[in-house]
Amino acid sequence: MARFRHLISIDDLSKDDIIYILDRAEEFEEIARGRKSNLLEGKMLANLFFEPSTRTRMSFEVAMKRLGGEVLNVTAQEASSIAKGETLADTVRVVSKYADAIVIRHPLEGSARLAAEFSEVPVINAGDGAGQHPTQTLLDLYTIRKESKLEGLKIALMGDLKYSRTVHSLIKALTLFNAKIYLISPESLRLPEEFLEGLKGDVVEAKLEDVIGEIDVLYVTRIQKERFPDEEEYRKVAGSYRITPEVLRDAKEDLIIMHPLPRVDEIDPAVDRTKHAKYFDQVFYGVPVRMAILTEVMLD
C-alpha cells in the first residue's frame, strides 16, 4: 500500500514519510548511476509542463527511463494548445487516460491540488506558481543527509527569502528535524513574518560573517533582477550576497554549499573547485529521490 497517492505539498508528508522516501532513494542510487532496472517497465509517465522547466522535466524523465518506464513529454507550447481554452480539469482528465502518473508544472498556485482531484492517476507537483515544489524539497533534504547530517543541523539560507518557494518549503521541512536556521537576505527580500507564525523552530536572522564558522550547510538562492527598482540597486545588493573562496575562509572544513540552480552571479565559479561545492551533486540526487516517488505512486 502506497504511503501517498499524490504528492502535492511537502506539508502533506510527516517526518516519518520524509525519512521513508529518503531511505528508498538511497536504494535507487545505483540505478540512477546506470545499473539496469525494469521496475517501471510498461508504465507511462506524462510530463505535463505548462511552463518551461528543462531541469525538473529532465530529472523526472531520466528517473522514469532508468527504471525502464516511458515518458510522454508535453511541453509548455503543446500544453496550451491541448488546452485551447479548455479547463485544466479537462486537460488533466484527458492526459490521465494516457498515462500511469502525471507530473505537472503550472503557473497558478493550487493547480496541482486541482489536478489531483480530477486525475484518474497519481499527480506529482513539479511547481505550482509561487506555491509548492515538494520534490525539490525532498532532494534538498536528501543532499543534506548524504553530504552533511539532518539531525542537529545548522544551516544558513541566503538570498531571496521572500519569493523563493524552495526556501519556504525547505524551512518547513527542516523544522521537523530540529535544525538551527539562519536567515541571510537583503532587507527587501526578508522572509515574510507571516511565514514564521505558527512555525515551531529555531529560526533567526543573521549575517553570514557571524555564522560562517559554525554552519554545516550554506543554501544559496538566486536574487532576481526584477525584484529591484533599478539595475544599480540590484548590482549593489547582488554584489554583497556573492559567495567567493574569500568569504569561505573561516568556514568549517565540512561545510557544504547548495543551490537549487540555475545560478547567475551568486556563487563565484572558483567555489566550484572547493570541497564545499555540492550543487551539482544536488542535481544528481534529484534522480534517486524522484525514482523513490515514482515507484511509490505507480507500483501497488
Binding site: 479547463t87 498556485e109 486541482l114 506558481g129
Partner: peptide, 15 residues
C-alpha cells in the same frame, strides 16, 4: 473567495 489572484480557484475551473 481566495484573495490570491494567482490561485487556481480564481480561474475558469469547475470548482
Amino acid at each position: 473567495r481566495c484573495p490570491n489572484g494567482n490561485c487556481i480557484t480564481n480561474s475558469r475551473e469547475p470548482i
